[in-house]
């Protein structure tokens, strides 16, 4: 229809409208007692809980602490994961031998190793970063290898036909070609990193948002608990959006 607004062209708006509808339905469900207020607070109460949580626990400051820890863990995961994935791609035998083990290790609940890390690194940010790095690196390694294995033979032959060097082959053909797959690994990795970091913050009562979630929970402040969980979701949204932008920059189409 000419001149009409096409929702499908504006995914952010469509998502926002969907979220608004969900929150309205939830508000009504809690208000009418269909959902227990003790378990799920009214969305309006969660919204109103932000100022007191900010005043009491510095929600914004801790948002940046968790965001910083996740960024540091992800940076380490990337700096180790991508080269190691490339190594497993170049060394076929190692790749075949270790990919299964890596996939199995990814399923392991590494968060339960936190006492060990506390012994090694103490109750410090380093424990959070290292605990976040482990689950973040594994999918990056696996997806980097898979992405490079999936590069079209024809594109490699194009490079060979133009006499490109090994270095140019990697930077100008293999890496851009593998970007979508590698970024799938990065997105999965960063989510697991964030989950691990928040869980450790919660368990050891140290660091950023996880510590606030723990504090609010033990105070039976349900709206405050949900407000801090929303802040965790915003960290996740930030990374999802950020890596989406980087991917778009590297692979515009």
């Amino acid at each position: 229809m000419t001149g009409s607004f096409r929702l499908s062209k504006s995914p952010v708006l469509v998502g926002g409208i969907g979220l608004a509808i969900f929150l309205c339905v939830l508000e009504i469900a809690v208000e009418t007692g269909m959902v227990m207020e003790l378990v799920v607070p009214r969305p309006s109460d969660t919204f109103l809980a932000f100022p007191p949580v900010q005043e009491d626990m510095d929600l914004v400051g801790n948002f940046f602490v968790t965001l910083g820890m996740t960024a540091a863990s992800t940076a380490i995961a990337l700096s180790i994961g991508v080269p190691f994935g490339y190594f497993l791609y170049r060394n076929r035998r190692y790749g075949i031998a270790y990919e299964g083990w890596l996939a199995a290790a990814f399923a392991a609940p590494t968060v339960l190793l936190y006492p060990l890390f506390l012994v090694i690194f103490g109750r410090t940010y380093l424990t959070l970063i290292m605990m976040g790095f482990i689950p973040g690196a594994i999918p990056i390694v696996i997806q980097t290898r898979q992405g490079l294995l999936g590069v079209s033979q024809t594109l490699l032959n194009v490079g060979r036909s133009f006499n490109v060097s090994e270095r140019e082959m990697f930077w100008k053909i293999q890496l851009p070609s593998a970007v979508p797959t590698i970024f799938t690994g990065i997105r999965i990795g960063v989510m697991y990193t964030l989950v691990n970091i928040v869980a450790i913050e919660y368990l050891i009562d140290f660091g950023g948002l996880g510590r606030i979630v723990s504090e609010m929970y033990f105070r039976f402040d349900t709206p405050g608990t949900y407000a801090s969980i929303v802040a965790v979701i915003l960290v996740s949204v930030f990374f999802y959006w950020g890596f989406g932008r980087i991917e778009k920059w590297l692979r515009p189409v």
Binding site: S152, T154, L155, N157, V158, S161, I173, P176, S177, V179, L250, R251, P252, V253
Partner: peptide
């Protein structure tokens, strides 16, 4: 020697 391949060979990025 320059080569044009049968398969799709342009760089999508």
């Amino acid at each position: 020697v320059g080569v044009v391949f049968q398969e799709e060979s342009t760089f999508p990025w």
